[in-house]
């Protein structure tokens, strides 16, 4: 099942300008990640498509982040990372 969102040419500076190594502070990185990803939450949470894998490939590519950074850094609630009310 293809991803309906095109993650290839998106502006990742919302993440890359705020989440920086070598420390990758969790508060900044996770908030930046949510600011980027929350608009696409429904498509990302659909594990029948490739959206999530594709998005992380580009995030890691544009930000040169270590694999698994956001998965190991970010925890909110038992269901996942809570998105701000729109």
């Amino acid at each position: 099942k293809p991803c309906p969102v095109n993650f290839e040419f998106m502006n990742y500076t919302i993440i890359t300008s705020r989440c920086k190594g070598p420390r990758y502070p969790a508060d900044l990185c996770c908030q930046a990640f949510k600011d980027f990803a929350c608009p696409y939450a429904e498509d990302l949470n659909d594990l029948e498509n490739e959206c999530s894998s594709t998005m992380f490939s580009y995030i890691n590519l544009y930000g040169s982040y270590p694999p698994g950074l956001f998965a190991s850094l970010c925890r909110d609630d038992k269901v996942g990372l809570i998105c701000p009310a729109s």
């Binding site: 990803a37 990302l44 999530s52 694999p67 998105c83 701000p84």
Partner: peptide, 20 residues
């Protein structure tokens, strides 16, 4: 109400290298 979230299932894709 706001019940939007990024699931951990989705987040776990961050661990999978794209070549796999």
């Amino acid at each position: 109400t706001n019940n939007r979230y990024i699931s951990y299932g989705s987040l776990s894709k961050n661990n999978v290298p794209c070549s796999r």
